[in-house]
């Protein structure tokens, strides 16, 4: 039984059904990161997918821009409890980036400029559920939100949507990323409230 906080009423919202357990809605766009914001020039930017055999697929910024883009509108859920509805993005589907990659791997470790990493099952990057996005709300993605490009995997807590993404390593065994190694959940499904290890 939860403890009743005497005299606490709280603020229910009309969109309560869209909120995973323990989340509340925000209208601004909070910024979270573990260190300084890397400044990555698009001239220097590259994105690589390295399979378990070591085969390497590489895209320059121009390569990325030349691919067909999608414009997903999604809800974001951050493990620090805020959720933001109907965010507009533009980017390239991971289905497209992975289509020529020959792999039997089950896991992905995502790497970012600045050294951040996060892990997730490779399946979660497929089936129209993940993108490398470079525009937010009609503008180029700003550095504090992960520009020039970030991963977007909105069905998992937002720490999985690695900012400043630079590549994906495909693995046959799961390997914890930055927050997953620091006590956070390995998978991070907001609807099952998988915030911390053991949830």
């Amino acid at each position: 039984m939860p403890v009743i906080s005497r005299g606490f009423h709280g603020r229910r919202r009309p969109d309560q059904d869209r909120l995973p357990p323990g989340q509340y809605e925000v209208r601004d766009f909070p910024v979270l990161s573990a260190g300084p914001t890397p400044m990555v020039r698009t001239d220097d930017w590259e994105f690589t997918v390295v399979s378990e055999s070591g085969a390497r697929h590489r895209w320059s910024w121009a390569d990325l821009m030349a691919l067909p883009s999608e414009q997903p509108t999604v809800d974001l859920h951050c493990v620090t409890k805020w959720s933001k509805f109907d965010t507009h993005w533009e980017g390239v589907s991971l289905d497209r980036l992975l289509e020529d990659v020959d792999t039997q791997a089950s896991y992905a470790l995502v790497h970012s400029y600045g050294g951040y990493t996060t892990n997730l099952p490779l399946e979660d990057l497929r089936h129209g559920r993940a993108w490398v996005v470079h525009r937010y709300d009609g503008s180029d993605l700003s550095p504090e939100h992960g520009g020039p490009a970030r991963l977007l995997v909105p069905h998992l807590y937002l720490w999985k949507s690695a900012k400043w993404v630079r590549g994906i390593e495909l693995l046959t065994e799961d390997r914890p990323g930055f927050w997953e190694g620091a006590g956070y959940h390995s998978y991070g499904d907001p609807w099952r409230e998988q915030r911390y290890r053991g949830d």
Partner: peptide, 10 residues
């Protein structure tokens, strides 16, 4: 975590 009498919590 705060919980109201009607079960709402945040």
């Amino acid at each position: 975590r705060l919980t109201a009498e009607d079960g709402y919590s945040t």
